[in-house]
């Protein structure tokens, strides 16, 4: 019984899933949506900024 328990603990110790903390962040989609919204807004706004200042428009 004792050796079986030791064997089980040894197996768990070598398993990468048990080597680090078992906690996992749940949810957080509001942060993800905010990040992608900022990313896309910045890329589109800078493209618009470049387009408005293009040499063909203001020679």
């Amino acid at each position: 019984m004792k050796s079986a328990l030791i064997l089980l603990l040894a197996q768990q110790a070598t398993d990468p899933a048990h080597r680090v903390g078992a906690g996992r962040i749940e949810g957080g989609w509001e942060y993800i949506w905010a990040s992608y919204a900022i990313f896309w807004s910045a890329m589109i706004l800078y493209t618009l900024f470049l387009w408005l200042r293009r040499p063909e428009r203001n020679p």
Partner: peptide, 20 residues
């Protein structure tokens, strides 16, 4: 946002990595 797997510890918030 929909195809990549979530991270083992950070879960879905790790998806920010792909733009950060």
């Amino acid at each position: 946002l929909s195809w990549a797997p979530p991270d083992r510890e950070m879960g879905d918030v790790q998806r920010i990595m792909y733009v950060h």
